[in-house]
């Protein structure tokens, strides 16, 4: 049996939703086993610029979605067709490498359950991916402590900017043209079961109160 090499920082976020670092040739047999439909790349350049990856995606019927981030400043001459034409303003070094717009784009893509199995990656599988996953967990109503606990498994530390980025994420995201039955369940859906269970006879259960108004919201237009 050949041995499978998972991409660095590889893990499962939810069923059929994986995360990790930039895939390399050595990871291809492993990735093939995941039977992916999509690869979501949070990188400066599209994954398919790499001929090996382009061939792999092509052969396995995997679509590549590129959400550009962490692009280094450069001359305008290299125009990519998928690029959003954002006006170039000179910026100071950003406190975190991504903007909320990246998270929002991810949510808009990941909310559709037809987009799975999906592998989401950035360059090293650490900061950018972790920030996006942390924001996604807010849609599952995870407590901040649990979100940061997960974040720290992939990053040796967290600074105040990263923490703020996660805590202050409460955008209202407009979702167009998505039938509710095609929404993944783990985003903004809750099990009623434990509301019923949440009674006095279940004295062993402790609940954590939330701070209101700090969560992101979804707005569906297709209903």
């Amino acid at each position: 049996m050949t041995s499978l090499v998972a991409p660095l920082q590889f893990n499962i976020v939810q069923f059929d939703f994986y995360r990790g670092s930039y895939p390399r040739e050595i990871n291809l047999p492993f990735l093939k086993n995941l039977r992916l439909k999509y690869i979501l790349s949070l990188t400066p350049e599209p994954l398919t610029n790499d001929p090996v990856m382009a061939k792999f995606c092509d052969e396995n019927g995997i679509e590549n979605i590129h959400i550009q981030c962490c692009k280094k400043k450069e001359n305008k001459d290299k125009d990519k067709d998928k690029d959003k034409s954002t006006p170039k303003v000179k910026k100071k070094k950003k406190p975190v490498p991504i903007e909320y717009s990246v998270v929002i784009e991810c949510v808009k893509f990941l909310i559709d359950r037809r987009h799975y199995p999906c592998y989401m990656h950035c360059t090293n599988g650490e900061l950018v991916t972790s920030l996006v996953v942390a924001c996604l967990r807010k849609f599952s109503y995870w407590s901040t402590v649990s979100i940061l606990n997960e974040f720290l498994a992939y990053n040796s530390s967290i600074n105040i900017h990263e923490r703020n980025f996660i805590e202050q994420f409460h955008s209202e995201i407009e979702i167009d043209n998505l039938n509710l039955k095609d929404k993944v369940p783990w985003i903004s859906l809750q099990h009623v079961g434990w509301n019923k269970e949440d009674k006095v006879q279940n004295a062993e259960i402790t609940r954590i109160n939330s701070v209101p108004g700090m969560l992101p919201k979804l707005k569906f237009h297709s209903l």
């Binding site: 599952s140 109503y141 995870w142 407590s143 901040t144 649990s146 509710l180 369940p185 903004s188 859906l189 809750q190 099990h191 009623v192 609940r207 954590i208 109160n209 939330s210 209101p212 969560l215 919201k217």
Partner: peptide, 12 residues
């Protein structure tokens, strides 16, 4: 399952 219009008062 229900669709949550509003975030629940308790965190997970």
């Amino acid at each position: 399952q229900i669709l949550v219009g509003q975030a629940p008062a308790k965190r997970i």
